[in-house]
């Protein structure tokens, strides 16, 4: 019985999680997280994944000669018109 109540509560929380996270509000005080280790772990995992992904793909410059290729293609297109 308690399990069913817990699952209903988790389902309700997770149903609204996209909106809660998207709102940017501090979720640490959310009543459900005070009592649910599983949803607290879920949120922690999502935070960790997002943070790790940012480090995975730094912003980089294209190679220097790419402009020359683009320029040549533009000139070729202009001449064919």
């Amino acid at each position: 019985m308690n399990d069913h109540r817990d699952q209903a509560s988790c389902a309700d929380f997770q149903e609204r999680l996209a909106d809660l996270i998207g709102s940017g509000e501090d979720l640490s005080a959310h009543p459900h997280l005070q009592t649910c280790d599983r949803c607290r772990a879920l949120l922690a995992d999502l935070e960790t994944i997002a943070a790790a992904a940012r480090q995975l793909f730094p912003s980089v410059e294209p190679p220097d000669d790419l402009w020359r290729q683009i320029e040549s293609a533009i000139i070729e297109e202009d001449q064919s018109e």
Binding site: D26, S28, A29, E47, T48, A52, R54
Partner: peptide, 25 residues
């Protein structure tokens, strides 16, 4: 391994800190 950071732009830190600044790109 990629060490965990306390929070990301879209996920406010659980301590209520503001989201990180936009990435440099």
């Amino acid at each position: 391994p990629i060490p965990a950071e306390p929070h990301s732009p879209g996920l406010p830190g659980r301590n209520g800190s503001a989201p990180a600044a936009a990435p440099a790109g």
